[in-house]
């Protein structure tokens, strides 16, 4: 960086202090605290804690319930990512094609971005209402007795549908802006070379969109892992019971409801490692291999 800078000594420090102070208190302190308490066992009545080494971690590995939740989270993440990416890509390609009504479609397809996840979950509760929900009626018409909050698979299905509904707009916005940044000359050249729209899409457009796609892949995985908390919480009405839940929800249930600070912290640390791995993967592999500009 060869930027000609100012040479004042105290001003930059003064400018950085608010940011650094806030992240020190509300980021580094909690993060270190989480790592530290993951090695301790909290007394259930609040009388101090005992050092237990790796016990909280080994407990996790041997815990059948935790493994079940991890498996569910994996499947949930895969489904949400797959469906929200493909649906959004389809819609973006079509929205890029049309001229008439383009702006209206764009607005209609992206406003859900601004809906909060728990509110999306609440709308899910209405749509899947046991006695008159439109989607329950729809399921019933094909002989599927949909029971949200009672049947494990039905609740999981509702979670996936609501999460996809909430995520399609973000992917749509990025795909559309990716499509619109493909130069006109490239499109015209492709048009001359190949008359089949399908072939043009797979041979030209799709590879050009790959960087956007990989970027969105990471965004969607992070979304499914973390941001769906509000959706899960409202759809199970705050009562986990026998319902499906994600790993982040489990951190909350164990730590905040069950007062198991050590176990919950160990789970937090596991998730931190997972996010770090994802981010490093994004920076290293994806950025290096797929680069078309």
């Amino acid at each position: 960086m060869k930027r000609a800078g100012f040479t004042s000594r105290w001003l930059p420090i003064l400018l950085l202090v608010p940011q650094l102070a806030i992240i020190a208190v509300f980021f580094y302190w909690p993060a270190i605290y989480a790592v530290q308490s993951s090695f301790y066992l909290q007394d259930p009545f609040g009388f101090g804690s005992t050092f237990v080494g790796m016990a909280n971690y080994t407990d996790l590995i041997g815990n059948a319930e935790y493994l079940k939740i991890a498996t569910f989270t994996l499947i949930f993440t895969l489904l949400v990512t797959f469906f929200s990416l493909t649906l959004a890509l389809l819609l973006a390609v079509k929205a890029d094609n049309v001229i008439r009504g383009a702006k209206t479609y764009r607005t209609l397809l992206m406003w859900v971005y601004a809906v909060a996840p728990p509110v999306a979950g609440f709308i899910g509760l209405i749509m899947f209402n046991q006695s008159w929900g439109p989607l329950t009626d729809l399921a019933r018409s094909i002989g599927w007795e949909f029971r949200l909050g009672v049947n494990f698979n039905d609740t999981a299905t509702a979670m996936v549908i609501v999460s996809v509904w909430k995520q399609v707009p973000v992917n749509f916005i990025f795909f559309l802006s990716g499509l619109q940044s493909i130069p006109r000359s490239v499109r015209e050249a492709a048009l001359i070379d190949n008359r089949s729209a399908t072939r043009r899409f797979w041979d030209v457009t799709f590879p050009l969109l790959a960087p956007t796609g990989f970027f969105l892949l990471i965004i969607n995985i992070t979304y499914a892992l973390f941001d769906t908390f509000g959706i899960v919480d409202t759809l199970v009405k705050g009562e986990p019971g026998n319902n499906p839940m994600t790993l982040v929800y489990k951190v909350y249930v164990d730590g905040f409801r069950g007062n198991d600070l050590g176990g919950s912290s160990a789970q937090s640390v596991v998730l931190m490692v997972l996010v770090l791995a994802l981010t490093i993967f994004q920076f290293r592999l994806v950025e290096r291999r797929i680069h078309y500009t």
Binding site: S37, T222, G255, S268
Partner: peptide, 11 residues
């Protein structure tokens, strides 16, 4: 790198 959700309890 670390969203608030993973460090919610210590926060």
């Amino acid at each position: 790198l670390l969203p608030l959700e993973v460090r919610i309890l210590p926060s």
